[in-house]
């Protein structure tokens, strides 16, 4: 067909190398989902607490900083931290390594 028709990059050929790549992919996905769930709990907690118990955000549990600051900064730092955890522990499925 046309020179820019869509190639099915997603198909998995039946070679052991490709199987290794898809195993790595599945492991990454599982790790990603676990980290995603952890972040989702943090984020949903913050949003729900702000919406339904806004006064709790004035509580100062740590070093005189209120909960809004701690949780808000915490969410940003957690995103960076989880991204690094994922980067370090995810498996590489590069084409070079398939051979």
């Amino acid at each position: 067909m046309l020179n820019d028709s869509i190639e099915d990059n997603g198909s998995v050929a039946r070679s052991p190398a490709h199987d290794a790549a898809s195993v790595a992919r599945q492991q990454n996905m599982r790790l990603g989902m676990a980290l995603f769930a952890a972040y989702l709990v943090l984020y949903a907690g913050f949003v729900l607490a702000s919406a339904f118990y806004p006064n709790s955000m004035e509580w100062r549990p740590f070093h005189g900083l209120n909960l809004a600051l701690i949780w808000g900064f915490g969410l940003i730092l957690a995103a960076i931290l989880l991204a690094f955890v994922y980067g370090i522990f995810s498996r590489v499925a590069k084409p070079e390594e398939r051979s």
Binding site: D4, I6, E7, N9, G10, R25, N28, G32, M33, L35, F36, Y39, L40, Y43, F46, S50, G72, L75, I76, A79, L82, A83, Y86
Partner: peptide
């Protein structure tokens, strides 16, 4: 700052759910 928090949180979806399949499936 609530917008800052929300805008950044969206990247977690991008990284853990979208990034790799997007690259694998599309052109």
């Amino acid at each position: 700052f609530l917008y800052s928090i929300g805008y950044l949180a969206g990247w977690i979806v991008a990284l853990f759910v979208i990034a790799e399949p997007m690259k694998r499936l599309g052109r």
